[in-house]
Every structure is written in structure tokens, then in C-alpha cells.
Amino acid sequence: MSDIADAHDGQTHHPGAATYLIIAAFLVILTAMEVTVFYVHALHPVLVPLLIVLAAAKFALVVMFYMHLKYDQWLLTGVFIFPLIIATLLLVSLILLFAYLSNHMAPIG
């Protein structure tokens, strides 16, 4: 990957203000889309996947551009991504485990 080799010369080339503003515009648009999805009833059957995709896109934009992971050494990406994967798997598995628990538990109260 060419930008890996580039990043390894010790200099990080951060993008300029123009890039930052474009990213900000994307972030605002994505947020607006999220809120729209929330209010449009027709979209509610696909609410969860849509929202997750939109949030993931925002997440990726901030992390890659504002936090410069796209430009920095992949070492930093590794240090961040690995715990992030673990955190996501943890989230998913805890939710599923408890969903099972509540499906098979006598109701309380």
C-alpha cells in the first residue's frame, strides 16, 4: 500500500482546511439523514441497519480524517482497531446472550 510506505518516512502529511470542511459537510448531511430516518415511518422496518450504516460512516470519517488515521502509521490504526473489534464483538455477544436469557426466563413481578 503506497501510503503505508509514505507514512513511514516519519512525516505525517495532514490534510488542509478544505478537506476538513468537506468532511464536516458530510458529517452534517449524514446526521440530518439519521434524524430524517428517525422521523419517517415508512423507513422503520429498516431503521436499525440504516442507522448503523450511517453511524458507522460518521465514525469512520471522523477517525480517518479528523484523527488522521488515514495519514498516520498503521501501527496507530492497529492499536485502535483491535480493541474496537473486541468492543464490538462484546457488545453484540452481550446483547444476544441477554436476549436469550429474557426469552427463556419467567417474567418477574
Binding site: M1, T77, G78, F82
Partner: peptide
């Protein structure tokens, strides 16, 4: 990708 990055990529 470099080898460690490959592992991370597949891990993701």
C-alpha cells in the same frame, strides 16, 4: 497490505 495489516484486516 503488509503482513500485520493483513491480519488486522481479516480480523475486522
Amino acid at each position: 497490505l503488509s503482513y500485520p495489516a493483513q491480519i488486522l484486516y481479516l480480523f475486522l
